[in-house]
Every structure is written in structure tokens, then in C-alpha cells.
């Protein structure tokens, strides 16, 4: 039960409170770039969940059993980037061979998120927060779900904005950034909820 409680706290924490896009400001580039349409945003979000899960499942053992073992913790950024890039490539090749339909819908986003900072951020945070393997996996799933949530929310805001009469000076990116900051403010309201979830 204790385990279940702590895992829920981690999961909800990484979805709502420490949302990687809206609170930690990682992965802003795909957040602004691919959020114009909701179906694209969902595709991107699902790909990010998939890659975050895989990346964590591979980098955590590497950090614990290889880098820490030899006292080379400072190499984690470089090694993680290398490993994640290889992993995404491998996943893409495998997917193209065995799951062509899935590749058609997710494939275009995979190269874009190869070395996305949100993905690297999750894997490095897992280490620096001292999570064990299961906690890391849950945290990465939560981070991915949080990313998906942020993308879907923001894409609906943006599709609402399409039809509005924006002042000329704010058209395009400026008004998008305003909207992003307001959504991010809304997420501040969640802070403190999860800490007292189980009394």
C-alpha cells in the first residue's frame, strides 16, 4: 500500500505539479511547434510517452550499473544523449518493419523528439531525484502524460485563437506565448494538492 501511495504521488506530481512543459519549461519547442492541430498534438504526445518510457528503461540501468560503478556519473548527459538517439532510431526501424500503420501515424514525430530536452530532462531528473527503477518508470510515464495533457490543452486553445482578431503586433508567436504563460499559471494552482493526497 505504501508503494502504491508513493507511486501515485510521483505520477500525479509529474503530470500536474511538475509538468515538464508548463512548470519546468522543458520541451517548449515541440509544444509551440506541433500544437496547431489537436490530432497532431495527440500524435506527438503519444510518441513522447513512448520515447520517455523507453529512454528511462534503458538509461536508469546504465547510470546505476555502469556509470556509478566506474565513478563516471559526470558523463551522464553525453551518454544519455547517445543512448536515447540510438534507441529512437532503433525503435523507428523496428516499428517501420513490424508495425507500419503505427509508424505512419507516429513515425514523423520520432526523429523530432530524438534529443528533445524534455526526454533528456526526465532521464536526468530520475537520477538526481534518487528514484529507484519502478519509481523512475512511473515518473517518466507521468511526465509523458503531462506532456500529452499540455499539448492537447494548448492545441484546443490555439484552434480557438485561429478565428479571433488578434492585434497585428501580437499575431503569430507573441500571442501564442501569452496563451502558453496563462495555461502555465493555471497549473500553478495544482501545487500542494498531491502532497496531502493521502492525509
Amino acid at each position: 500500500m505504501e508503494l502504491f501511495k508513493s507511486l501515485t504521488v510521483i505520477l500525479l506530481g509529474s503530470i500536474l505539479i511538475n509538468n515538464y512543459v508548463l512548470s519546468r519549461f522543458l520541451g517548449i519547442c515541440p509544444f509551440l511547434g506541433v500544437s496547431k492541430k489537436t490530432d497532431q498534438a495527440v500524435g506527438m504526445g503519444v510518441s513522447v510517452i513512448f520515447v520517455m518510457f523507453l529512454a528511462t528503461a534503458v538509461t536508469w540501468p546504465i547510470q546505476t550499473y555502469v556509470l556509478s560503478e566506474f565513478g563516471l556519473e559526470y558523463l551522464e548527459t553525453v551518454v544519455f544523449i547517445l543512448v536515447i538517439a540510438t534507441l529512437v532510431q532503433l525503435a523507428e526501424i523496428t516499428m517501420k518493419k513490424y508495425m507500419p500503420t503505427l509508424h505512419k501515424s507516429l513515425g514523423v514525430y520520432l526523429p523530432l523528439i530524438t534529443t528533445n530536452c524534455a526526454i533528456l530532462g526526465v532521464t536526468i531528473n530520475n537520477i538526481s531525484d534518487g528514484y529507484n527503477f519502478i519509481e523512475s518508470i512511473v515518473n517518466s510515464l507521468g511526465a509523458g502524460l503531462g506532456f500529452l495533457l499540455a499539448m492537447v490543452l494548448f492545441s484546443s486553445v490555439r484552434s480557438k485563437m485561429e478565428g479571433t482578431n488578434v492585434p497585428k503586433a501580437l499575431k503569430g508567436l507573441p500571442v501564442t506565448l501569452f496563451a502558453a504563460s496563462i495555461i502555465s499559471l493555471a497549473f500553478v494552482g495544482f501545487s500542494g494538492i498531491v502532497d496531502n493526497l493521502w492525509g
Binding site: V79, L82, Q89
Partner: peptide, 17 residues
């Protein structure tokens, strides 16, 4: 370590493709 990691990664990708 970097060399070995890169080598393994390269080999995996080469075989996969």
C-alpha cells in the same frame, strides 16, 4: 566508456538496418 557505448550503438543500428 564513450568509445564502447558509441561502438555498441553503431553496431546495433547497423545490424538493425
Amino acid at each position: 566508456l564513450m568509445l564502447i557505448t558509441a561502438l555498441i550503438a553503431a553496431l546495433i543500428l547497423a545490424f538493425a538496418s
